[in-house]
Computed example of a mutant assay.
Amino acid sequence: MTVEVLDLDRLDCRFVDHRWRFAEERSVEIGRHWEERRRRNPTLYDGRVLLACQVECAIDDDRARVLRMSLFETRFSHFLAWREFGWPDETVYNCFSMPAARSRDGAYLLGEMGPSHSYAGRLYFPCGTPDPSDIVAGGRVDLFGSLVRELAEETGLDAAQARPAPGWTAVFDRQFVACVKRLDFDASAQALLTGVRAFLARESAPELADAHMFAGPETLADPRLPGFMVAYLSRTLGGADEIPLSAG
């Protein structure tokens, strides 16, 4: 498959009511799947999350490149089953925001997902699936606010201490839509890493198992990186806009 990377000027995310037929029609199968996943990982929590039922790239009247998304509320167990059943409903997307925290010497901070995570062991920018707390005035979904919260909760870093790059980078990888905002910190890679690892050591139940700094293209071969992370890092570390990946 091909992963596409696009530069955007802004996001326009709205909360909508949506009847998800997948969740209704396969409710029994979803329930059994959740029971099995909970048996293997009792820390999983069936909270509410937001998924997208519409995603559209557009040029606005001011010539800005905009990603418009309509997001609806569902349960995490429904989302997890949809993902692990192989995305049977391709009209729905997992849209989320990610902070690309970069040190002053050009390295990027990645978190290693902890054992309680549904993607334990994988490497990502600190992030999470948006939830109803990200719905703000006027029915807007604040993905920048979601990014700030997840960065603080997972790493202890304060986004206010960084310089945000203008615009966003969206990575489309089948049903994943990762919206990345680069945050430039005035700290060395070693200082960022030391601070995040100290934060994790203080937490009684940290979300991350560890943190790592990635600075060169040789790091892209790490098998713990999902396709959308490889695509973004390849581009920012000197790769192409479209990265051909194996179907696996």
Rank of each mutant, 00 (worst) to 15 (best):
D12R: 13
F96T: 00
L147V: 01
D60V: 03
G138N: 12
A162L: 04
V136P: 07
L143Y: 04
D131G: 02
P126M: 09
P164T: 08
P166G: 02
A247Q: 12
G121Q: 05
R37N: 09
Q54T: 13
C53D: 08
F79Y: 15
W87L: 04
R26H: 09
A58I: 10
R140Y: 05
E29W: 09
D9G: 02
V196L: 06
F144G: 06
E207A: 05
R68P: 01
E56D: 11
G111Q: 12
H117C: 02
V16R: 01
C179M: 15
H78Y: 12
F176E: 10
P99N: 07
A231I: 07
S70P: 09
V177Q: 09
R149P: 00
E29Y: 08
E218I: 06
Q54I: 00
T91G: 11
G216C: 08
A240G: 08
P223L: 13
D61T: 14
E56M: 12
E112A: 04
D186G: 00
A64H: 14
H18T: 10
A159I: 13
D184P: 01
G86A: 12
E24H: 11
A162W: 05
R104C: 11
P42H: 11
N94D: 01
I30S: 05
L44G: 04
F79E: 15
P244C: 08
V180W: 00
D173I: 02
D131H: 08
R21D: 15
T194A: 14
R149C: 05
L109N: 03
L237R: 11
A58L: 07
Q190I: 01
A165E: 15
G128Q: 13
M69N: 09
L192R: 01
W82K: 03
A81Q: 14
A191E: 15
N94S: 09
R68E: 09
A198Y: 00
I30A: 09
D241L: 10
N94E: 06
E35P: 05
G145K: 15
S118L: 04
L147S: 08
L225Y: 05
H212Q: 14
E35W: 14
F15R: 15
F172A: 05
